[in-house]
Write a protein that binds this DNA or RNA. Sequence first.
RNA 1: GGACGGGUAGCUCAGUCGGUAGAGCAUCGGACUUUUAAUCCGGUGGCCGCGGGUUCGAGUCCCGCCCCGUUCACCA
Length: 497
Amino acid sequence: MNHPIDELRQHRLDKLERIRARGDEPYKYSFQRSCTVAEARLALEQAESAAGEGQEITPIPATLAGRLVALRKQGKSSFGNIRDERAAIQLFLNQNVLGEETYEALKDLDIGDFVGATGHVKRTRTGEITLFVERYEILSKSMKALPEKYHGLTDVETRYRQRYLDMVANPEVLDRFRARIAMINAMREFLVARGYLEVETPMLHPIPGGATARPFITHHNTYDRDLYLRIAPELYLKRLIVGGFEKVFEINRNFRNEGVDTRHNPEFTMLELYEAYQDYNGLMVATEELFCAAIEGVLGTLEFDYQEDRIVATRPWKRLGLFEAIREYAGIDLERTRDRDAAAALANGAGVHVDASMGYGKIVDAVMSEKVKPQLVQPTFLYDYPIEISPLAKKKRGNPDLTERFQVFIGRLELCNAFSELNDPIDQRERFEAQVALREKGDDEAQYLDEDYIAALEIGMPPTAGLGIGIDRLAMLLTDSASIREVIIFPQLRSIE
RNA sequence: GGACGGGUAGCUCAGUCGGUAGAGCAUCGGACUUUUAAUCCGGUGGCCGCGGGUUCGAGUCCCGCCCCGUUCACCA
């Protein structure tokens, strides 16, 4: 068989042989760089500005390492480019300098190999910052052809399945994930500075709680029992508030056995925080501050573009009652109508599809999702949600049909969910029982009754407000990404058999 | 799960009416001592996503399936 892959592979194997035959090792154990490529470039630029316009400067000695990303041979001299994590630099390789034998050995280098090189950094006469190489060595041999240099790798499936290749071929992908990391760091620093404790709670739950979603089920052999990958950390974080911590947060993965689309990945990262003696009013302020810290931490400004829209996130953000928003954007009033069928009729009239299984709360939620959310470009709080779809939130003062709950929307993305936490154990039990009743009627997303959580509330939980932020979606917003898969480094794809 | 779009060389893509499977880059050989998508000459490289069908003949038409994207449904 003469497959091209075999041929290319054979060429590389031959090169490995030749390298080893020279007594060299194509997979080195370490390499001592004098600095990074970016540092070398900066050193030259600083020397230049110190010397002044048009002055001769002394070339800067440097030993650099990186992946060889281009090699232009021109007879007895050659140009290459290496790239390390942060920057790329041109190499100049000349037979007179390297010696005939070493220069000849360039034949055994391929684009994709890691190379270490020692020489002096200066500009070529075309002005390109270049390492004039005096010694080089191969550090690691690549056995595969890299994607084409000009177009890069654009095939979305390959980009997601082989993210490492995406990162090699498209360096801006590194920037996107750096932005995500910077965002998380900014939020963590903000919270730690305000005295929140970062905690870790279980990923394996005996009862999946804290959200309405289908769980992944797994099995623990020693205890011979099924466990669930957590759909939310909420109930454990609130147990910590019961235990005596007053400000806690966790940034970690949740798993939900639901559909996959541009805004949903089966595993996703959530920041949840809880603060004792706080309610949703105070939390709205803190939420605004936290979001702004994240946005400025990444972008350095509160004004930015997301897809087609210009977002201006300067505070204060718009606040709208949920029903007010529905009146404004859907043109119907669902607040006065607590009757399920009347609400369904109004929703239908507004062009929102309602099916028979949906109760009042879900109808309100559907109208919000279809008619309100698509209008919420600028940062907006929606607050006061129906009790039916908020089983862990405290009833609104003066209106037991509503809960003290809010969500934040930016760029049509739903980014967080927060409420005054329900800490009345008797009310909580009734809410759980309502969920169990829904489950018995066939709603497999209804929540489970968690007796131990009730027991914790019976010990006593102070007044508390809590918040959950979809980290991946916020990363989408701050990196102008249309799909959640662009900000999840290894997104979930169907496996190929 | 439905609708729409896509899957051809390692990568990026053409492929007309059903008639010998193409280009650029990469790769291999040659030329070249300041190039940077280097250039010039020559060569190698294909399960056309998979499986059926129609046909003298299928990358192309038909049917089924797989995978990806967008979208709708569900969810955050």
